[in-house]
Write a protein that binds this DNA or RNA. Structure first.
Lengths: 334, 334
DNA sequence: CTGAAAGCGCTTACAG
DNA sequence: CTGAAAGCGCTTACAG
């Protein structure tokens, strides 16, 4: 299987490679009509398609970006990716997806791999474990956009939910429905996973804002696979909360596993709100009240920012943080 | 930002480009120890990383494969992709993901794009709408593996669920639990979406096998966004089924929306089984009985087959269909 | 043991 | 209006 090259086309059409190249790049300005037709014909007849690799080498641009997510199995990542792809597709950019699994080592390997592949830019859910690398990228003005996480001292365009607002919305909804003893359940606060910290801060601030004193025992943290134990503790204390905010979709899953196991009725025995929309929110009984991230808008914005940086190199705008508004889906679990 | 090239390294180390290249490719056989160290040092000092694009051009291999899924938002696709990535990552292959959205035009563009990018092979959920293209790929011995769908007359390695068996397992489970009036709900049977056809055939065969006469009115088809209407019809007939098999996860979702809306109790009012595992199966009330596809195993197999074809060109083994066994997750909805 | 040279398939500045 | 030539950053067969 020998691939057809530009030389074959040139020979077949009886012109030079240069001219064929001009044709392929639609620089018809000075091209004779006859020449153009002959090339057109040759291309068709030979079924020629250009070797982008060769072009990239010469042009030093691959029209490809890399996307490093924590885990493609997470719904949020999946939606962000989909939005990025759709946007890039329109602009004739291609996308390479990588799973860093929140492992700085893997992230580093992927960033290096993507650079070796000469991608024009990267969108990443940064692990936060490669500060030196991030700095090096900024240093050489390599286009990068971060998603979902803010890395302190690193100035890079970042697209992120207004996480405090998400907690605010939840607290307000609880209060509106008459719940005042509000608890919150969170996975461990790893450094750099901005969203968790912010959601917890937002929770505290919202209570404060509503003149409710924050109760230490109403905020508990645990590994996902252990969080049902933690939840049990929370609910077995003397004056347990009557409402519970699940910090993310995975926590919500465990909360529901727990309430199912213990035959608790929602919202009578416990009102529940989850941050992150889940696919089964509407069909669950009761339908689940959630706070939704505009994942598609966020993905699109990230792609837009990145492609802007790639195409307007001159325009070295200062990096900013772009906050997106969460949305309350008020249903039956609260 | 001028990138460091092999020439810079050569100069810095005081050797030729050839030698540096040998070093990078770990062909140390005849290399002097001193030379090796000097290069090692230069590479580090300059922070050199090779330009894979240039290498690919020369070697005519990009160590990259393309994956064309119908929709990355579908859980099954997501899991297959993850398995493919993990496998490829181990073998130092990279993956480019594309969403064809079951649109033959898009599929065609993506296949051409991937070939322009000189990928070494493609794994696709074929739309079935580009038979000529598929044939052309086989013709030039371009490595391809299909997932989930069998395209008639096209001989290509295909990884697919034993869909008939999936229906068999469901029917058996219904019978075991004492349900004999078994209905099935399906999305429209588009040509080429093999799995739907097979699941329906399996359903009929299973009934036949159990000496139950198949009732036309117990098998209904409808667009997803209209399937609740169809379901209503099914359940309002004179002698409605007491058990229902949902052909896939999206049908199941609608079935559950319906039973929730009409306050039906599962399994008392209607026993339900869904083909495809869903994330909420265990936390739903009742927990949902499902038939699960081994998505990760299937993705891994597809990757394995493709990389084998890529690396053992000589070994032109006949394309086969690889069937995977579905698994019954017996829970409470049946 | 190491290096000069050719070549992968394009693009582009320049000459005519 | 078209073409010869150089070059993108590598690899590799071959010479020494």
């Amino acid at each position: 299987m020998r691939r057809i090259t530009i030389s074959d086309v040139a020979e077949h059409a009886g012109v030079s490679k240069s001219t064929v190249s001009q044709y392929l790049n639609k620089r018809y300005d000075y091209m004779g009509k006859k020449t153009k037709e002959r090339i057109e014909h040759a291309v068709k007849e030979l079924g020629y398609s250009p070797n982008i690799i060769a072009r990239s080498l010469k042009q030093k641009s691959t029209m490809t970006i890399g996307v490093i997510v924590a885990n493609i199995l997470h719904v949020f990542s999946t939606q962000v990716i989909r939005a990025i792809e759709d946007f890039c597709n329109e602009k004739d950019f291609h996308v390479i997806i990588c799973n860093a699994d929140d492992d700085p080592e893997k992230e580093k390997r992927y960033i290096e791999m993507l650079q070796s592949k000469q991608v024009d830019g990267i969108i990443a859910f940064p692990t936060g474990g490669n500060v030196e690398l991030y700095k090096a990228l900024i240093e050489v003005q390599f286009p990068v956009v971060f998603m979902d996480r803010i890395i302190p001292w690193i100035e890079i365009d970042t697209v992120i939910l207004d996480n405090e607002k998400a907690s605010f919305l939840a607290v307000e909804e609880f209060l509106r429905k008459g719940y005042r003893e509000i608890g919150m359940l969170s996975p461990p606060l790893r450094e750099n996973v901005t969203s968790r910290m912010e959601r917890i801060n937002g929770f505290k601030k919202a209570l404060d804002n509503k003149q409710i004193t924050f109760n230490q025992n109403y905020l508990m943290v645990g590994e996902i696979n252990n969080i049902q134990v933690v939840m049990k503790e929370m609910l077995e204390q003397d004056n347990p909360p009557d409402a519970l905010l699940a910090l993310n979709d995975r926590v919500l899953h465990e909360v529901l596993a727990f309430t199912k196991k213990h035959r608790m009725r929602l919202p009578e025995d416990l009102a529940v709100i989850g941050i992150d929309e889940v696919s089964y929110a509407n069909i669950y009984s009761p339908a689940l009240t959630t706070i939704q991230q505009p994942a598609f808008d966020m993905g699109k914005k990230a792609a837009e920012l990145l492609l802007n940086r790639i195409t307007n190199k001159e325009n070295c705008m200062d990096p900013k943080i772009y906050r997106f508004e969460p949305k309350l889906n008020s249903r039956e679990s609260c």
